Simulated scan of single mutants.
Amino acid sequence: MKKVKLQKIRLEREITQDAMANLLHMKQATYSRKERGLTDMTEEDWEQIAKVLEVDKSEIYEDSPKKGTIANSLKKQYSVVPTSLMEKIDFLTRENLELKEKLKKFENQNN
């Protein structure tokens, strides 16, 4: 299961997956698989990521589904997504968050 809370905080801090991977001493592809929930994260992974993002682990932690579930099996079958597409999704997600913040500020000014 995709780590939505983790991705949101990482993007808010404008940290790329590549930068996170470097800070965690792993390859970008490895970090990407962990963030997308394709590879399980260990307690140590969660603690290191929380330290890098300067947050409490509880702010980013999301449990993984149990192995053997239908959703988990389907995800493994259809999880091959080109890195360039994931980078574009990351960029658009970050841009979307920025636009939402600008919209909030605009709405607050008009109230």
Rank of each mutant, 00 (worst) to 15 (best):
F91I: 05
M20W: 03
E98G: 05
A50I: 10
G37Y: 08
D40F: 10
L92R: 10
L97D: 00
T16A: 11
E47A: 15
K5G: 00
E62F: 06
R36A: 08
K27F: 04
G68V: 00
I70A: 08
E54K: 13
A19T: 12
N96Y: 07
K57W: 14
L92N: 11
S32Y: 01
L53D: 05
E14D: 08
D63Q: 00
K100F: 09
K66D: 00
L74K: 02
K102D: 09
E35L: 05
Q17T: 01
Q48V: 14
S64P: 02
E35I: 02
D45F: 15
L103W: 04
L103F: 14
V52E: 05
Q77L: 07
K105A: 01
I9K: 07
M20P: 04
L53R: 03
E43D: 11
I49L: 15
S64H: 09
K88A: 12
A21K: 04
E54N: 14
V81I: 13
I60S: 12
Q48N: 15
S79Y: 06
D45L: 12
I9Y: 08
I49G: 14
S84H: 13
H25Q: 14
D40I: 03
A21N: 05
D40S: 09
K102H: 12
I70G: 00
L99A: 10
S73C: 03
T83E: 06
L23D: 11
A21Y: 09
E35F: 03
E44Y: 15
V81D: 06
E43H: 14
G37R: 07
L74Y: 05
A71G: 04
N96P: 02
V4N: 10
S58P: 08
M20T: 09
I89L: 07
K5Y: 08
K75N: 10
I89G: 02
L53Y: 11
S32W: 02
E12F: 11
K102P: 06
K8V: 01
